[in-house]
Simulated scan of single mutants.
Amino acid sequence: MDAKRMLIFGAVVRAGSLAAAARELGWTQPAVSQHVRALERELRVPLIVRGARGTVPTEAGLIVLAHANAVAARLRAADAEVAAIADSTAGSVRLATFPTAGATLVPAAMEVMVRRAPGLEVRLTDAEPPQALGLLDSGDVDAALVFRYDDEPANSDRLVRTLTDHPLGEDAIRLVLPAEHRLAGRQRVRLTELADERWVGGCVQCREHLMRVCARAGFAPDVRHSTDDYVIVQSLVAQGLAVALLPELALRSVRNRGIAVQDVDGVGIRRISLTHHPDAAGIPALRALVSALTETRTSPVTDLAVG
């Protein structure tokens, strides 16, 4: 396969149409179309279907897209490594991170990087783990800071199996109650004692975790509210509208005066890691980020009292 045509094909799929890809590349639409058709002739299979909703990859097109993204990632890594020869103290890394880490772990690591090598920078994008991995797969970021619950089914996705993973420790899950709740102040709470409560659900992974732990405790939670904003979660709880499970990082970032935080049996932990394509390991800013995150992962974060 022609690598240049693969990259053009990847741009077409990401942009959603030949015209949009042409604008992105600064080419004419016929030129882009010609390269895609030539790639299809090389492979002897159609790669895209043009319809009312734009350009959609076929099954063969999805396979080519995965390799095109890998080629793009390797080219960026090569560019970064060559630049590092000239100046290993300059450059950037594009990072996708989930919100609680973006409010705690990442700023602390970035501060370390600024002190050690001001020319290295992190360009941050906020994204929950599934979206962050999608950005990594498409080449829109160089690394993703993600979490996985310890009871979460193993991810057998092709992308995940090929990534380099840097474990960054565990994040405890805590029960958040209204300050005046009947269970507030207890040394430990059993999940079964909350079977009749109203709940706030978090991000998709967090809601699925809540459903699993409650099912093991023998009940289905009454999820009245759904938000991945942990400030809103705490506000709802503080007003006596619901209870919730929140990770320790969320509580280290912001702590509402109107809540009580309890240990609860049977909810487990979530594990945090930084992940990237193996070929990106040569990016100087990524190496510095891994080092800074490893150093600061247990550093305390000042609590902010709100509400």
Rank of each mutant, 00 (worst) to 15 (best):
L75M: 11
A38N: 15
L95H: 02
Q34R: 14
R44E: 02
V49I: 09
R50F: 05
R94G: 01
L43V: 00
P99V: 09
I48L: 15
T89S: 10
P57S: 13
S33Y: 00
P99C: 07
A84S: 14
I48A: 08
R23F: 01
P99Q: 11
G91T: 03
A60L: 03
A52E: 15
G54R: 13
A38M: 09
I85E: 09
D79C: 00
F98M: 09
Q34H: 13
S88L: 04
V32S: 06
I63E: 15
E40G: 05
T89H: 09
A73M: 01
R44N: 11
A90K: 11
T55W: 11
L75S: 07
P46W: 05
V71N: 00
G54D: 10
E24T: 14
L43K: 06
A84K: 06
L95D: 01
V64W: 10
A52Y: 07
A90W: 03
A52G: 04
A68L: 10
A73D: 01
A38K: 14
R74N: 11
T28P: 00
T100L: 00
E24Q: 12
R44F: 01
A83M: 04
P30T: 02
A83S: 09
R50M: 03
A90V: 03
D87N: 13
T55R: 12
D87L: 08
A31N: 10
Q34L: 10
S33N: 05
R41T: 10
V56L: 13
V64P: 02
V49M: 12
H35N: 15
R94D: 09
L47Y: 14
T55E: 14
A83Y: 00
